[in-house]
Nucleic acid binder design. Structure first.
Lengths: 228, 228
DNA sequence: TGTATTGAATATGTATACATATTGTGCACA
DNA sequence: TGTGCACAATATGTATACATATTCAATACA
């Protein structure tokens, strides 16, 4: 069946939030959005309700929708929680994956590598999101999936710069991350839970390092101080 | 501000689903419900969307809302996931709780004991739900809270019989559970994370035993076989 | 007897008008 | 100049009519 305008609005808003094209904390105007997507306010409001349920936006009575913010306390929770959930999901996925899901995962990984080759950092970030979301689906656990979905939203938003590496060192890190994906695919296919968990934790460490360096960059060299 | 009819619909549906007054898998008719709560279909649909976001109901395009089902695969995930999430939440709550939340927690525990005294098993189950949801709020972690909320929905639905103990043994178990609540309150107030985690795991074991016995009851005695 | 097909009944989905709440601006007044 | 109030402008919330999809039962046909 063809995608309805409502479905398009839903997936477009998801993508724009994940890519920080719409910034964390930004206001969403019902009237403007319903106009943009060519649907009336009623179905657009349902889209916003759905996005709220998934953790993309926050709704406040009588004052509309805001994109979920990423304040200090959110970040703290994020770094605190992610490794445990990612590892648990990985372990379950190794035990529960099926053939069709394996095909999808390989397909998404191919798209991920293609995006890296074309230096399309936005597409790479979204393919990476989809890769990890698929592993979440494999785990087949509604409780952990709810946590994972929310973690991936913030992870993807924080990693926007990751896939546009500036230095050769950073390029090597991205390459390593892609290789880890391939190793994870192999281990999940082999149902080798221990290896998948270890790879997942390594993958997390690499990503965490990059994110922490982005959040707390190296100080500027002192000799530039007079120019500021 | 006074509760609107919409808010009443939302909380009433939550309670009816938690108490299995509306059974898992049951169909929800928009027209009937909007009539019941005296609101039009538009706001009622928003209520259903919200309930879907919280994991109470499932929405399927063009075929309305169903109460979240509890099939075998759900149960399996539940027993697999609950102890880890409960323990993590408990640990965080011990570190992050504030005074107002402690007051609320003690208040809810008082309501819980009162319900036990009055042998109001429905009220006891709901107070127990609220007790653990409050600890979730204390943890101040959106990712784990998303998982906890969903776990508590199913836990409360599965525990409906727990607070209507039939034997003296079962009555003692309920009493033990209430005592564990008090010990948890004390440990959270003292910010003693290790003790809270241990108490939480003990509390889980007690509940798990009861649930497993309910799901897989002892076989009937053989001498009754001819009567079946 | 079993299976398709048609159409009425019923339910969900969408657009629009109107109701209510919030926000911003100009003006009076201290 | 600053503060508070009134009122207009704007945004969100709700009811209703209509559009579209699904379901079910009656009937035709193999």
């Amino acid at each position: 069946m063809p995608l309805s305008s409502k479905d398009k609005a839903l997936s477009d808003l998801r993508l724009r939030i994940l890519s920080t094209d719409i910034a964390p904390g930004a206001d969403l105007d019902e009237a403007r959005l319903s106009d943009t997507y060519g649907i009336s306010r009623t179905p657009l409001r349902e889209v916003l309700q759905k996005l709220a349920g998934e953790g993309f936006v926050m709704l406040a009575p009588n004052r509309g929708a805001k994109v979920a913010s990423m304040d200090l306390s959110t970040m703290r929770s994020f770094f605190q929680t992610a490794p445990m959930i990612y590892a648990s999901i990985a372990r379950l996925a190794a035990g529960a994956r099926n053939e069709e899901q394996m095909r999808d995962l390989k397909e998404v990984q191919a798209q991920f590598r293609q995006a890296l080759l074309e230096q399309d950092s936005g597409a790479a970030a979204l393919a990476n999101h989809r890769f990890h979301a698929l592993i979440g689906e494999m785990a087949h656990n509604v409780y952990l999936s709810a946590a994972l979905q929310r973690l991936l939203i913030d992870h993807t938003r924080m990693s926007q710069t990751f896939y546009a590496p500036a230095s050769d060192d950073d390029r090597a890190l991205v390459e390593t991350a892609a290789d880890q994906h391939d190793a994870m695919i192999a281990a999940i296919e082999a149902q080798d839970a221990e290896t998948v968990v270890q790879l997942t934790l390594d993958h997390w460490d690499l990503s965490r390092n990059r994110m922490e360096r982005f959040v707390r960059p190296d100080p500027l060299p002192m000799e530039n101080a007079h120019a500021v």
